[in-house]
Every structure is written in C-alpha cells, then in structure tokens.
C-alpha cells in the first residue's frame, strides 16, 4: 500500500477546493492518504476532514506558516508528514514547496502533473507544446495542475490530529504591498479575459475589465500587448515568458495566437476567441470563435452576460 501525503492548498486562509482535486490525484497513486494542513490556527484544518478519500488530517500548527518562507515551511512540514508520495498544488508557491520537500527527502520532484496512469505521470514540456510521460520508482513529490482532476466529494469524515511544529525562518518579510485593484491575478483566477495588440490602445483594456468584473475574472494580456504598451505590466502576461494558466474559461480578445501565447493558455478548459481575422491561429484552439472586431463583439457579450448573470 503506497502512502500518499497531500499538502493542503489554502486560499485566503481557508482550505481551497484544489485540495479536493489533490486527494483525487492521490487516490490514483496509493490507497492511504494523509492531508497535511499548514496552519497557524488548527481550526482551519477541520474542513479538510470532510474530504472523501482522506484517511487522516494532520493540522501542522506553527507560527512559521503566517508568511511563506520556503526553508521554514519545508522543515516544519517535513517534520510532521509521513513518508510517501507528496502531492501539492501547482501554484507558484506550492511548486516551490514541493521542490524543497523533495530535496529535503532526497527524492525527485515532478511538477505540473496533468495525468496519472498507474505509475506513469504526464507533464507538459516546452510550455505545453509537447507532453512528457515519465515512470517513477519509489517515493517522489509531485505538483498537480488545477482543473485537471475532478474534486473529491466533501462526504468524508476522518480524524484531525493537531501537531505543533516549527522551522527556522531564514528570510524576513519587510512589507506586504497589496495589489491596487481588487481584481484577481491571472495565476489565481478561474476565468481570464485577455487582450492583445488588437485592442488598439491600452485604454481599451477597460472594456475587458468591465466584463472581467461581471465574471469575477482576471484580465490578462499577450506578450505583444505587454511589449508594446508600458501601461500593461508583465504581471498580466500570459504565455511562455509570462504566466502559464489553466482556467475553466479563457477569453482571448484581439489575440492572434502566437505559439508563445498558445503555450501559456492552451490547456484552459474552454477557450473563446474574438478576432477580426478569420484566419487567426487562435481559432484553431477555440471552443467558441467569434469573427468580429472587439468593438462589435464586447458590448454584446457584456449585455448578454448581464442578462444571464442577473
């Protein structure tokens, strides 16, 4: 029986549903699943005890989990996590942690897993231009892409064990600078609407923002837009030299679909493309394509969404 250890993913101080997806991934790799919840207050971990398929929840309680410090987190989690296959989310922070934990245990790490078939794991390489299938012997650490595995139900009920732990904090948080806008970052969002150079001017991104606010979406941009306009920061860039995203819905507006951009968003569950050029490569990847200028399409999209969302 292979032991699996899921490191819970937290969002705004609560167990995120990504954790349920990690438990599903764990069930494909082994039969005994322990969820480790890094927390400053152990009550946070109670929610994880409902996840069906988990055999045990460890609330790893420590002050070090107040802010992310890679070495302290790895030390504190390693001290309480049983040995086995470690499974984390594939957020930037959790990938970093997975790498730390693997190195700490002298096992290998496989990032961004998108498929599990027996002991064969699949990961995108060259930003998704190809898929690599690897087989693993012994324990390993893996990070799992969001929106790939169906989330496990919340119909379980297992024991929560609180264990105090600690680690040596090596970096010092000087200041947290909150993002000026309340809007989500592309790396955190389940819906993304992105604009390319076809938007004409950076000011026209306000039309994307209007729709983003209706959908609770993040606003992204192509590399061409980021390189052309100083007003569009690199933090918005989706693509091979920007962020690789995997949302439920990706709406590409005025983006032709350069190989660089496709690499960063092609694995989105649903893709909508709005482009005036009927031959734009983005249409080959779109579930729903609209051949139109954004000036024609966005107002209609906006009012339709208002109608549907009430």
């Amino acid at each position: 029986m292979t032991e699996t250890v899921v490191i819970a993913e937290l969002s705004k101080g609560k167990i995120s549903s990504t954790t349920n997806e990690l438990v599903t991934a764990a069930s494909k790799l082994g039969s005994n699943c322990t969820i480790v919840v890094p927390c400053t207050e152990s009550s946070v971990a109670n929610e994880a005890s409902n996840i069906a398929g988990a055999s045990k929840v460890i609330a790893a309680k420590s002050d070090v989990f107040a802010n992310y410090d890679a070495s302290a987190w790895a030390e504190a989690i390693d001290a309480v996590a049983p040995s086995g296959i470690i499974i984390t989310a594939a957020s930037a922070q959790s990938k970093d942690l997975a790498a730390r934990l693997a190195a700490r245990r002298s096992i290998s790490v496989i990032q961004d897993v998108i498929e599990i078939e027996g002991t064969t794991l699949s990961t995108p390489i060259y930003s998704g231009k190809a898929i690599q299938n690897v087989s693993v012997s012994g324990n390993t650490a893996i990070s799992v892409r969001a929106n790939v595995f169906a989330p496990a139900d919340n119909t379980g009920n297992c024991e929560v064990q609180v264990i105090d732990t600690t680690g040596n904090v090596a970096t010092a948080l000087k200041e947290m600078v909150q993002r000026a806008s309340q809007r989500l970052d592309v790396s955190e969002a389940n819906i993304i609407i992105s604009g390319g150079r076809g938007m004409g001017t950076p000011a026209n991104f306000s039309h994307l923002e209007e729709i983003a606010d209706k959908l609770g979406a993040a606003v992204g941009a192509s590399r061409a837009a980021v390189d052309t306009w100083d007003e569009i920061p690199h933090s918005m860039q989706v693509g091979q030299t920007g962020k690789t995203v995997n949302p439920n819905l990706y709406i590409a507006v005025g983006i032709s679909g350069a190989i660089q951009h496709l690499a960063g968003m092609r694995s989105s569950k649903y893709i909508v493309a709005i482009n005036k050029d009927a031959d734009a490569p983005i249409f080959q990847h779109a579930d729903y394509g609209i051949v139109a200028t954004w000036e024609d399409a966005l107002p209609v999209l906006s009012s339709s969404l208002s109608g549907l969302l009430g």
């Binding site: 930037a92 942690l97 190195a103 790490v109 995108p124 390489i125």
Partner: peptide
C-alpha cells in the same frame, strides 16, 4: 517549466 532547481539546491 518546473522551477524546481533553485529551491531544491537551496534546500
């Protein structure tokens, strides 16, 4: 695209 090398070496 893994990003494991930096944190792994540090550990």
């Amino acid at each position: 695209g893994a990003g494991s090398t930096g944190p792994g070496i540090a550990e």
